[in-house]
Design a protein around this nucleic acid. Structure first.
Length: 299
DNA sequence: AATCTACGCGCCCTCTGCTGGTGCCAG
DNA sequence: ACTGGCACCAGCAGAGGGCGCGTAGATT
């Protein structure tokens, strides 16, 4: 509802409801209500921008645009201040948009899903996820992207020579993307309240990277040491067999002659040699000492 | 009525950061 | 051969900057 204390303003406003557009642009045949609007419009055709910025090459059709430009680029004057944080803006509409980040208000509802946006642009951008539209094309490999920023990163990482790299301050790992570095730091270098145990010993850690580094120290380590002699080995099963040399235990018995063995393999060799009819005895005889061998061996 | 000025809306852009799928590699 | 972990990668949303342009208030 329009109200005004001035008759002139009222009359002018009423003209906005009338379709009377008597001022014709002779370049595109578009019509305007006032001569000022027509003049501004013609300035767009002719490129006439009377309001020039004194600090850069920009020029504008109206003085208001110039003032706003100067605030953005040169004076940095931000008259619109947020009452809830330090944010300040050049334009009131920007403050209004910013305040939605405090209130959580999302006036722009997607018609196809539950998503709602705080501003029109985000909704428009979101709609590409439904349409499948990918407006941005890589000029090198012609891959297509939904957002310009995604394409920019793609070109930088895939087609640029001086690819930026991010080095982890804790472990010197090189990672291509800043956001991935955050993931790396979160997964490997953040303190965790719950203890992480070493899979080889009783050590515990609160940082995953420290655990991994520690576990590497166990690699090639002969962790199983005999308490009776100098013997050491990597696997527990080897130590079990070795211990029988100290205990005298011989758990494997030959069913044919009751001879006992410490290892299953020794029993197997014994059985084949003495009780298996298909066993081929030594056929290659040493020409010097006469000892027989089952295989031909060159010394 | 014409003009200047301030305001509001809309559009487009960039920067930022999180997420989940994927391929590779070590265990 | 299988599995879990990690860097790589594209998809996607949040926040904010900058400008075009129409309209209303104020002034000439």
């Amino acid at each position: 509802m329009f109200t005004s204390s001035r008759v002139s303003s009222f009359h002018r406003h009423m003209k906005t409801h009338a379709n009377e557009k008597s001022h014709l642009c002779h370049l595109c045949l578009r019509t305007f209500r006032t001569v000022t609007l027509l003049r501004n419009h013609i300035n767009i055709h002719t490129g006439t921008r009377p309001y020039k910025c004194g600090d850069c090459d920009m020029a504008f059709v109206t003085s208001g645009e110039l003032l706003r430009h100067r605030r953005y680029k040169h004076t940095h004057e931000k008259p619109f201040k947020c009452s809830m944080c330090k944010y300040a803006s050049v334009e009131a509409s920007k403050l209004k948009r910013h305040i939605r980040s405090h209130t959580g208000e999302r006036p722009f509802q997607c018609s196809l899903c539950s998503y709602a946006s705080k501003d029109t642009y985000k909704l428009k951008r979101h709609m590409r996820t439904h349409s499948g539209e990918k407006p941005y094309e890589c000029h090198v490999c012609h891959a297509r992207f939904t957002q310009s920023g995604t394409m920019k990163i793609h070109v930088l990482q895939k087609h640029s020579e001086n690819v930026p790299k991010y080095e982890c301050p804790h472990c010197a790992t090189i990672i291509a993307r800043k956001s991935d570095m955050r993931v790396h730091l979160r997964n490997l270098h953040t303190y965790k309240a719950t203890e992480m145990k070493c899979r080889h010993c009783s050590s515990v850690f609160h940082e995953r990277y420290a655990l991994i580094q520690h576990q590497k120290t166990h690699k090639n380590e002969k962790r199983f040491k005999c308490k009776h002699c100098n013997y050491a080995c990597k696997q527990e099963r080897h130590m079990t067999v070795h211990m029988r040399t100290h205990t005298g235990e011989k758990p494997f018995t030959c069913l044919s002659c009751n001879k006992r063995f410490r290892q299953k393999q020794l029993l197997s060799v014994h059985f084949k040699k003495y009780h298996d009819p298909s066993f081929i005895p030594a056929v290659f005889e040493c020409p010097k000492c006469g000892k027989g061998f089952s295989r031909w061996v060159v010394y």
